[in-house]
Nucleic acid binder design. Sequence first.
DNA 1: CGCATTCTTTACCGATCGGTACACACAGTT
DNA 2: AACTGTGTGTACCGATCGGTAAAGAATGCG
Lengths: 188, 188
Amino acid sequence: MARTVNERPDAVAALAEVFREYGYEGASLSVIAARTGLGKGSLYHFFPGGKEEMAGAVLAEIEGWFERAVYAPLREEADAPAAIRRMFRETDAYFRSGRRVCLVGAFALGEVRDRFAARIDGYFAAWRDALAGALRRAGHGEPEEAAEHVVSAIQGALVLARAVDDPAVFVRALRRLETGLGLPAPGA
Amino acid sequence: MARTVNERPDAVAALAEVFREYGYEGASLSVIAARTGLGKGSLYHFFPGGKEEMAGAVLAEIEGWFERAVYAPLREEADAPAAIRRMFRETDAYFRSGRRVCLVGAFALGEVRDRFAARIDGYFAAWRDALAGALRRAGHGEPEEAAEHVVSAIQGALVLARAVDDPAVFVRALRRLETGLGLPAPGA
DNA sequence: CGCATTCTTTACCGATCGGTACACACAGTT
DNA sequence: AACTGTGTGTACCGATCGGTAAAGAATGCG
């Protein structure tokens, strides 16, 4: 074999930004080629399934990142409040304090949802359930309700932040949600 | 003049559903023609500006509806808590208890945002400000914060409801938000 | 080196895109 | 009935869509 350099991961990262920016329909192969630096031939070499496989790879990569950085800690970390605080930090970082959009959420709103229904559902369900578990361990009274609220409010904050073009909306929302959970003080 | 039947409003209503379902890019003129029952000729007669004017008309119609049914009451109704409760009722009805998507929110997430930035920003800003005013009149302690939270959480609930394909998520969110505001009991 | 495999380039495909041109059907007015 | 302006059907435009085919360049292994 030759040149088994894994450019695919790099391509997936670039693809993520393209889909985030243009949406599924809006991301034409020409802009994809331009932004990834790969020709159509290379793209179809890495992703024989075409656009659908590209978007699928992006969604898988996103879910993998959240699983590692957020869901797993929420599930496994002994110090549940710390894991929850970490979730807020990682979320803020991932979404660039409101300057970045949630691709999964954006897909959920469009007709593409049907195509990736399982992945989209899985992403949010895993988040909600992992957070609910951590909240329960942290002694929260209504962990399921609260978890659903937090996950959904984060999405809404991303929508509103972009709608009014003010990332601060997102930052405020995260702070509000975190303090609203009434977690014990970090050093307690 | 002849046949000045106003089919344009009907067309706008149909257009709204098409854009909601397919998004801006995804709504091709062929599906628009099919769903409105109008040929290309008629469409370009009513909307000389093409797709962009169609989407603009839809956004204007949506904003008009909310202005009449929600924002104006929030601003003018003497009984502020009643206006707020009415907002939740109308919102639930408009979004079909979570089965319908917010077109403005969906547009906000995509690249189309730039094209309709003013309209999108205006829609959310008007909602937030009208609600903040009503909350202040209702004696709420932090009306701006609370209003931003409610508007954003409603959007998030629509995203999550569609993502996990469970409209109940939206209904629960509305109830949670309304009770969270601590409004005086209806008969007080 | 030779060779197999991986990757890229390029040209091309039919279909569909948004949009235009224009002839024509219809309805009021006179 | 002739005229006028609104609405519609249809054919067409160049551009771009997502996707394919295949020849060739680059690379690691023997």
